[in-house]
């Protein structure tokens, strides 16, 4: 097991399987088809993200450097939280960006969804974690990686 210490943006704890985006995660492009047409597995629709394209995102520990793209991004994250289609958690290697922060905070303040969000886990975290590994997020911002 390896542990990484990050900063807590939205507190919480969970254990989930890792899904890793090595490049910027485009929130709108990733979610727009899935939320519009009721994809139960919430498969990633971003054709520019070779790591995630067509992979189910629901309930995964989404590991990413940052989010990119349209400023609807936070609204999209709020919506997936409100309809219960959010990832188990979002784990950022870098400092969180403004769109992801907005979405995570809107989800925390205005919905009942539980989606811990940790940032500043470092480049080593993203280099180490692989799809399918088991991640446990603790309230204090520590992420344990096994598998």
């Amino acid at each position: 097991m390896k542990t990484f210490q990050g900063r807590v943006i939205v507190p919480g704890s969970c254990t989930a399987e890792a899904l890793v985006s090595r490049g910027g995660f485009n929130t709108l492009a990733s979610y727009q088809m899935a939320i519009q047409f009721g994809d139960k597995k919430v498969k990633c629709g971003d054709q520019n993200n070779a790591d995630l394209y067509k992979k189910p995102m629901l309930g995964k520990a989404l590991c990413l450097p940052m989010t990119i793209g349209s400023t609807t991004g936070g609204m999209v994250l709020y919506t997936v939280c409100k309809i219960g289609k959010q990832p188990a958690c979002m784990l950022f290697s870098e400092s969180i960006d403004s769109l992801a922060a907005a979405g995570a905070i809107l989800g925390a303040v205005w919905t009942e969804a539980e989606m811990p969000v940790i940032d500043r886990l470092g480049e080593d975290f993203l280099a180490y974690v692989k799809d399918g590994m088991t991640l446990t997020v603790r309230e204090d911002g520590v992420v344990e990686v096994t598998g």
Binding site: G69, S70, T71, T72, G73, G74, M75, Y78, D97, S98, L99, A102, G103, L106
Partner: peptide, 22 residues
């Protein structure tokens, strides 16, 4: 995103890349 980057860069206004709703 396109309006924010234009306002910041070409007009010199000050705006973060806020999300919708925010």
């Amino acid at each position: 995103s396109s309006a924010v980057v234009y306002a910041n860069s070409v007009l010199g206004a000050r705006c973060n890349r806020n999300s919708g709703i925010i």
